[in-house]
């Protein structure tokens, strides 16, 4: 029982103290998982994190699920997952309920108009980062352009585009001739 509470509290803390998610979560994960509770060493944590990146879903949540499972099986996985998402559920619910009461004021409307511009800039920078990291050769440019155009022009569902990309990768791997990998 004590172990379950410890898992819940640790991941709740990680959820509440990290802004931005993703990589921003790593230092907190390291502190709680490696240094304080010794659930994994740093190398194991990085492995879990890497797996969290290449599986569907939210990376930080996936890492929590993994550590929870390694410690205490299925129930541990569930409790760690609930722990890491709980702060979001509480905080966002409060804000969502609160914001609505102010929506009708003109001053709030004006502010939100500016906020949308800032969101456009933030998300643009995220896309630039993604292109820098992920689009590295001619094939990458083609896939990027296809995905973009299919989505914008034909409204193709992201589910289909992601599934198609995975399918394509399987063909690439199967066709790959044995050679030194880069």
């Amino acid at each position: 029982m004590k172990d379950f509470i410890l898992l819940f509290v640790s991941f709740f803390k990680i959820g509440i103290l990290t802004f931005g998610g993703g990589l921003a979560m790593l230092p907190m994960l390291k502190l709680e998982v490696v240094e304080k509770n010794k659930w994994a060493n740093e190398e194991e944590l990085m492995n879990y994190y890497a797996i969290g990146q290449c599986t569907p879903g939210i990376i930080a949540v996936n890492t929590a699920t993994f550590i929870g499972y390694k410690q205490k099986g299925v129930l541990g996985a569930i409790i760690s997952t609930v722990g890491i998402v709980m702060p979001s559920v509480i905080i966002i619910t409060v804000i969502a309920a609160f914001i609505r009461n102010f929506m009708d004021y003109e001053i709030v409307q004006n502010m939100l108009m500016g906020v949308r511009i800032a969101v456009a800039a933030l998300v643009t920078s995220a896309v630039i980062e993604l292109i820098r990291k992920g689009v590295k050769d001619f094939a990458g440019i083609i896939i990027f352009a296809l995905s973009f155009l299919l989505s914008v022009c034909f409204g193709i569902s992201p589910v289909i585009i992601v599934a198609a990309a995975i399918f394509l990768s399987v063909i690439f791997v199967l066709k790959e001739k044995p050679k030194g990998s880069n």
């Binding site: 290449c54 995220a126 689009v135 990458g140 990027f144 296809l146 995905s147 989505s151 394509l168």
Partner: peptide
Amino acid sequence: VNGAFYTLRPAVAGLIGAAV
């Protein structure tokens, strides 16, 4: 798994670009 990212990264970048 590793090979999947070769095509997934640009595809996801394109999808998010479209949302932007």
